[in-house]
Every structure is written in structure tokens, then in C-alpha cells.
């Protein structure tokens, strides 16, 4: 099992489409689309959202992504009506990117707090106000201190560190208690890893801090050296 996701949008097409995109990287995660009104118009419906939440309900919890305005308000209303209001949480994140990040983290077995963080950190990165930057620095690797474990691994697969491998790494690391950087990019962030645009033959320098530092570095090394299961 993993954390389940519910997408609330004004448009059924947006909700379905976002799930379709995220599903590519997280085939095993339960994702329910709750877009449009119950009679197929643009808008949101409490009934539709409640039904999706019920279907997604699972022991690991549910994270909700919503697009704007009434979708956010309807999602908040739905939370108030849940038999257990703590069984789901609404992410403050951009819909598509936030969903993909959350789905990747969920696919990697992360708990709900980590899945929520995966979605919301995108938002904080886009709006680098002082408070958000402060919290990112505080949560980030202890700059200056040497890593608890590190390793160098060469990309052997033809396509290099593209979306799916980045998702595999970020998803797996999400479930570990370690701060990891890969060529200075944040290991737990799929988008950061993709921005590296590392191709075949690139050496990835992996550094990790924390209880699971060694396990995290070996996990990344294992994936890289196996070519992420690709040719």
C-alpha cells in the first residue's frame, strides 16, 4: 500500500489528464480524479469530491491536490465532512507538478507527511519569500559539514537521468531518513534531478547526511549501476 491521491479540479478533463500524467511515473499509486460538477459542467461538487475521497481512503492516508478557487474551498469543505478529518490532507501546491511529485514520493513508499512535502516544496521553491527560504535552509543538508556517506556512480543507461529514473531515485529517497544531494542537486526532488540533464557517462557524486545516509547512497548507486533497468 501507499499514500493515495485525490485530484480536485474545475474540469473533469484537467483532473483526468493530471492523473494520466502522474500515473506514468507512479503506476501503483491509487489516484482518484474529482473534476467538474456531478452533471458534467465546469465547477466542483462536494458529492463528487466525497465519493473520490471514499474510494481513495486507505490506512496510509490521502493527499488532495486542487487547482483554484472553489476547488480548494470544496476540498476544504469535504475535509470537514469526513468521518475522520485527519484521514486526508490538502496540499498547497501547483496541481500538475505537485501531483507528479506527490505520486512519485507515494510510489517510493513515502509516508503522508513526506508525500505532502514533495508536492508543497515545489510551491515554496517558486515563491522564495524569506520565511520559505529559511525553512528550506533549515531542512536542507547541513552546509559545510562533511557528509555521513558518499559515493560516485557512472550513468550507464543510454537515456541517462531522465524523468523515470529521477522519479525512481526521488521516490525511494523520500522514504528514507537522510538528506541527499546528487551533483549538488536535491536527491529527493525529481525536478531538481531532471534539471541536471545528466547523460550517459556522467559521474554522479552522491552525498548523504542522516541516519539512513549509507542506505541512501547505496540505493542510488544500485539504481545507477543497474541502468535503472533500462538498456
Amino acid at each position: 500500500m501507499s499514500v493515495a491521491l485525490v485530484v480536485v479540479s474545475h474540469s473533469a478533463k484537467i483532473a483526468d489528464g493530471a492523473v494520466e500524467v502522474a500515473r506514468e511515473m507512479a503506476p501503483d499509486v491509487i489516484m482518484m480524479a474529482a473534476g467538474g460538477t456531478d452533471d458534467g459542467r465546469i465547477g466542483t461538487s462536494l458529492d463528487t469530491v466525497m465519493a473520490a475521497l471514499e474510494k481513495a481512503s486507505c490506512p496510509d492516508g490521502v493527499v488532495i491536490l486542487a487547482d483554484l478557487g472553489s476547488a480548494i474551498m470544496t476540498a476544504e469543505s469535504a475535509l470537514e465532512f469526513l468521518p475522520d478529518p485527519d484521514s486526508a490532507v490538502l496540499a498547497d501546491a501547483p496541481l500538475v507538478e505537485g501531483l507528479v511529485a506527490a505520486a512519485v514520493a507515494a510510489q517510493g513508499g513515502a509516508d503522508r507527511k513526506t508525500v505532502l512535502q514533495a508536492a508543497e516544496e515545489l510551491f515554496r521553491r517558486r515563491q522564495p519569500d524569506a520565511e520559505a527560504l529559511g525553512s528550506m535552509v533549515a531542512e536542507g543538508p547541513p552546509t559545510g559539514s562533511s557528509p555521513d556517506f558518499s559515493g560516485d556512480f557512472t550513468l550507464v543507461n543510454e537515456a541517462g537521468l531522465h524523468a523515470r529514473p529521477a522519479a525512481q531515485i526521488a521516490g525511494g529517497l523520500a522514504a528514507m531518513d537522510a538528506e541527499v544531494t546528487i551533483n549538488a542537486a536535491e536527491g529527493g526532488s525529481m525536478t531538481s534531478l531532471m534539471i541536471l540533464a545528466a547523460g550517459k557517462g556522467t559521474v554522479l557524486h552522491v552525498e548523504a547526511w542522516g541516519v539512513d545516509a549509507e542506505r541512501a547512497v547505496k540505493f542510488v548507486g544500485g539504481l545507477v549501476e543497474a541502468g535503472f533497468g533500462e538498456a
Binding site: I42, G43, S70, T74
Partner: peptide, 18 residues
């Protein structure tokens, strides 16, 4: 409240519903 939240569709649904 329940009907408005499910049938209005726009922001007025959750606002008036609440």
C-alpha cells in the same frame, strides 16, 4: 448547505454552503 455545496459548482457553493 449540503445541496448548495454539491449542486452550485462555483465558489458560491462552498461559500454559501459553509
Amino acid at each position: 448547505a449540503m445541496v448548495l455545496m454539491s449542486k452550485v459548482g462555483g465558489a458560491a457553493g462552498p461559500l454559501y454552503g459553509t
